[in-house]
Design a protein around this nucleic acid. Sequence first.
DNA 1: TTAGTTTGTAACAAAAATGTAACATTTAAA
DNA 2: TTTAAATGTTACATTTTTGTTACAAACTAA
Lengths: 226, 226
Amino acid sequence: MNGKIFIIEDEPSIIQLVQHNLEKNGFIVSSSVNGNDGLKELKKFQPDLLLLDWMLPDLSGIEICKNIRKDNSIKNLPVIMLTAKGEEEDKIKGLDCGVDDYLTKPFSFNELMARIKAVLRRSNPNTVSDNLEFEDLVLDRIEKRVYRDKKEIQLGPTEFRLLEFFLVNPKRVYSRDQILENVWPNNINVESRTIDVHIRRLRKSINIQNKKELIRTVRSSGYSLI
Amino acid sequence: MNGKIFIIEDEPSIIQLVQHNLEKNGFIVSSSVNGNDGLKELKKFQPDLLLLDWMLPDLSGIEICKNIRKDNSIKNLPVIMLTAKGEEEDKIKGLDCGVDDYLTKPFSFNELMARIKAVLRRSNPNTVSDNLEFEDLVLDRIEKRVYRDKKEIQLGPTEFRLLEFFLVNPKRVYSRDQILENVWPNNINVESRTIDVHIRRLRKSINIQNKKELIRTVRSSGYSLI
DNA sequence: TTAGTTTGTAACAAAAATGTAACATTTAAA
DNA sequence: TTTAAATGTTACATTTTTGTTACAAACTAA
């Protein structure tokens, strides 16, 4: 999964949260806290998708959207509009300006992610893949299968999530805390040594004869794919 | 791990417990049992993170949070909201005011610690910054690798941190005390001569044939890159 | 239920990193 | 030059970190 996403949103905390999570998922993200700057930077950044707040200090989301549709260089940019709960849906839809999807705040990140994928798939069907690949390793998120060297490998659920997490940013070294945070969503009461054991299990599963080790240990830092 | 944490929480026993444990983990902690005092002291204390109770005798957590987001001097302060079990999550999230994380009481200290680490890591993105470079030396903080003349060099953890520290301000001379403070986690009982030995190890690792010495000794002052 | 997986943790082994002492060498001042 | 302080170098014991295995508890599917 890759692509460039631009955000126009005046609440810095939302930008921070969304940006961080999108980057973690392999997107390149840039943002602006107001409409006028946003429009300018947008053209430079050439994103594949725009997250646009409905209420902004200067230009409204609607106006920005209209500007985009008039500008040939970014005319077909897909837009997801973010609206706060109070704002009446009817009014917003009445003033529709060719938005691809809506999302009501507060939203969960999973929800946002699903909408982004859907919109990108529609607008750009070839760039979005749910397969994660690295060297001769392929992880199919839809069918929940993993292959090495085109042969399927059986993984347990935790091993699968662990590998999925590493594959989003292969080569990047993650601390045990980071791994815990991302692979064990709810259970924070897990010893950090537990990760070592799961790493060991994952290694055992994905290592096949005559192939190099894929998981690197970085002493006192963590692990990464390599 | 170091940093300053402020707590606003009306239950003294919780403050005491949390404060004690945080201090044991190397944080500097200050606290207040109500919202109005808390806001004032907060600005003086300039913490890196705020633990904020949802229900307080005077101002609610939400109000405090909104005040913070309006105040330019502490606008981007990360906040972890503490909520009691009864309080409905939906309501709290509906009234979201840019909080970075939530924690439901009663919570284990490990859980709190994990959240704090995660939030600090997010807000303090020292891992996001690019590679550090100096002459033909490259240090990749993401992948935790070091190259000289494009060939990878293996460093131990302390050597890595030492080099990372020097690379932020190459050419600048650091005293042994400064090095100790910045490179050793809790500057505990480590002799100052120990640094000399690690410098020696680092030198040995990064010196390659026909290339000039990169670490300068400044007699009676310290060391620097050059 | 039962049988088979999956998961977390303890316990021990192995490997790597670390701190320090002890001695050698260099430096700068008298 | 002589001398004392500062730094370089090496070796080694200790501590920390990681790998590995085993096992019981939790979970799942039949």
